[in-house]
Design a protein around this nucleic acid. Structure first.
Lengths: 238, 238
DNA sequence: TCAAAGCAAGTGTGATCACAGATCAAAAAA
DNA sequence: TTTTTTGATCTGTGATCACACTTGCTTTGA
């Protein structure tokens, strides 16, 4: 940290002054782990050790243990009696539990959003959908992570308008907990279910534009239920 | 930490072998802060510093900063851009937000519990209520913290039966966030509203015994709304 | 008298070390 | 061969130190 910061008053880069981000190492570690979890990149059941992660991320143990602590208290990671920490394994009961909670809470959030969102907001959501379309058209290869990111952005761009600072972190925690389950399901489902996905998403946007909270909620629940039920069938079969 | 642990196999204290609790310092610090927050002992807006807490709790800074980190990620404490941490101030918007979220989520939890709970479970809940009655009878003085603890136990003894490992931590987080608001309201309300409280609680137990999810949910929402609306009137008046 | 510069105490963050408990494999006893 | 014991290694926890940033007050200059 040797570089000299410019005086705060003389910064004239943009029209609006955004406070310069002083991201801590802990925040970066947290972000990395979070990204890996919501993307389902870490196998459920995997035990995480502080020193190994610190080596991989090229830092000391300090930021890693604090990031892990945060994730544990968000229930994104599970603390074992051994005091070690692992990605929660996927069980049938947990799957149903997560889906029920998400349907209730995210359903309520989208219903609230439907009553408050303006044309400007729905336009931003449509923009995400059309970006998604273009990705799907041009990509011969399976640009899977890209689509999962777009799905994440699509949903949270909606929830952002629910006007509840209390519900938002709850929903983020639920996504974090669903992440390890979802990826497997979504991979299995991507070929067959793409048409359904886009259909639900269009229904959601239309309902939001119409201010129809009930229809938005129903379409959302159908949308988030899909990968869960797929994974459920797969687990019961095995 | 010099004392020698007894061999695990030769422990024969109780009929059921509970793993001996090896509580870390961090857990104790977390518990203390948590207790103080749900009891509303810390004024909303108060800035917490690591070293000051470490001094008060007679430990080093290490366990304190990890406990604070956990509470921040549970939204029980608020991280300021200065990187300092404070108890979230109480605003009208936040109050309404919290109440709405709690009514939805705890309402769902009690509805689930009503469908699953057995006679053994409702008996345990009734036991808490009668303990509460005896406290209320014998106490000339205002045994306020005792009553808040009993209220906490009453509610969570119910939620425990909802069968959702996902909803439980969410509800605990919501109580933690409500704590600083509730105490003020409950103190103001304790004299006038006691009859209502016991009435709602009895209704809740009866509904649970009857397996009437709807009535249980309605009574619960009435119960948790009361201190919120009291505090709301007080804030709008001021 | 008032504003700006400068200094000192306070605060969070990250690194490193010490240590106890856990884990696992090799060696010893049955 | 099977079981127990022992030992080395790994891992989380807590303490302490260094450092950069903030904050608040004093001092200096106009």
């Amino acid at each position: 940290m040797e570089f000299v910061a410019a005086p705060r008053e003389s910064v004239e880069e943009g029209p609006v002054f955004v406070p310069v981000e002083r991201e801590t190492v802990q925040d970066r570690v947290y972000g990395e782990l979070r990204r890996a979890l919501v993307s389902g990149l870490i196998e459920p059941g995997t035990v995480l050790t502080i020193r190994a992660l610190a080596d991989q991320l090229q830092t000391s143990t300090m930021p890693v243990r604090e990031a892990i602590g945060r994730l544990v208290s968000e229930n994104a990671l599970e603390a074992l009696p051994n005091r070690s920490v692992r990605v929660p394994p996927v069980t049938l009961a947990r799957l149903d539990d997560l889906l029920r909670a998400r349907a209730m809470i995210e359903g309520e959030a989208i219903a609230l959003a439907a009553e408050r969102i303006e044309a400007r907001g729905t336009a931003a959501i449509r923009a995400i959908l059309s970006e998604w379309d273009s990705v799907r058209d041009q990509a011969e290869r399976e640009d899977f992570d890209r689509e999962m990111t777009l799905n994440h952005r699509f949903h949270f761009e909606i929830y952002r308008h629910c006007g509840s600072a209390v519900l938002m972190p709850v929903i983020e925690s639920l996504w974090l907990q669903s992440g390890p389950c979802i990826r497997a399901a979504a991979l299995a489902f991507s070929a067959t279910g793409e048409a359904d996905t886009t259909h639900y998403h269009r229904t959601i946007v239309e309902a939001l534009e119409a201010g129809d909270a009930g229809r938005a909620r129903a379409a959302l629940i159908a949308d988030i239920s899909r990968p869960f039920t797929t994974l459920r069938q797969r687990l019961t079969a095995a």
